[in-house]
Design a protein around this nucleic acid. Structure first.
Lengths: 132, 132
DNA sequence: ATTATAACAGTAACAATTATCGTTATTATA
DNA sequence: TATAATAACGATAATTGTTACTGTTATAAT
């Protein structure tokens, strides 16, 4: 079995992700982390993000914009995607029901997890549209 | 304004997608259509699929496997993704409780559309696991 | 028939991600 | 504490899915 070894880069990636409320892509994180580690490699960012996903410490998802997003919040929750500014907002856990609670009829299989995305315009974008 | 012109390739792409219950990627469709048009270009498949999406005749979605899938069914419905065989099964909205029922709290914006995916194992895969 | 142009096939370009490779840093063991 | 084993590194090449470009062909309007 493989034994993990500490790395300052991984620590930094994890911390960086923890302190952000957006849901950055690997590349967005890479840009941030380069401030602390100017010569970190993009490959290292990808490698560690995927490792953290495997370990269950973070989650990864795609919302249809062509790239993967990473989220430090691992417990079940949903996302609101603003099509105007691109922001991805976490929807509070209080809204969440268990997977089986969704079904009214018999399913074509056993669903372990589910993902729910809302697409529209966030309050901030709607307000700034009124102002102009 | 641009006026559409008929093309046998587009017709074939549309028919092919209409006659499939899976939700093929552009590449999967390309392989099928080459049986009828041996020298069709993958670019033509992409171009026409995106055009059909623009026209609202088909829809496009990603379920997290890194590529876009195309669906002839345009009315609102959900998807069940089997993680064992990769099959994507359409779920009529009637099968799932109205999503708005779950949201007691205020949303952080105005949601125009939403997408809901279930991930697990389909009945077929569960059965073949029992047999072996 | 002629002309305009949408669509084509082929291919190059692109963006996101993963794999490779020689080197460095971390941890286990002597 | 020195040494050995190897996880992780940075740099870069390769891969994958998709889009854009280019010269040619097919469709439909005049």
């Amino acid at each position: 079995m493989r034994t993990l070894k500490y790395s300052r880069q991984r620590e930094s990636i994890k911390n960086c992700l923890m302190n952000r409320t957006d849901h950055p892509t690997a590349d967005a994180l890479y840009l941030s982390i380069r401030e602390e580690f100017p010569n970190i490699s993009l490959g290292t960012v990808y490698r560690n993000l995927n490792l953290l996903v495997e370990l269950g410490e973070i989650i990864k998802f795609t919302c249809g914009d062509g790239s993967e997003h990473f989220d430090f919040t691992t417990d079940q929750h949903y996302h609101f995607v603003c099509r105007t500014c691109g922001k991805i907002i976490d929807l509070p856990v209080s809204m969440v029901r268990s997977t089986s609670d969704f079904f009214t009829e018999e399913m074509p299989g056993h669903a372990e997890t589910h993902a729910l995305f809302f697409y529209g315009e966030c309050n901030h974008c709607m307000e700034s549209k009124l102002e102009s």
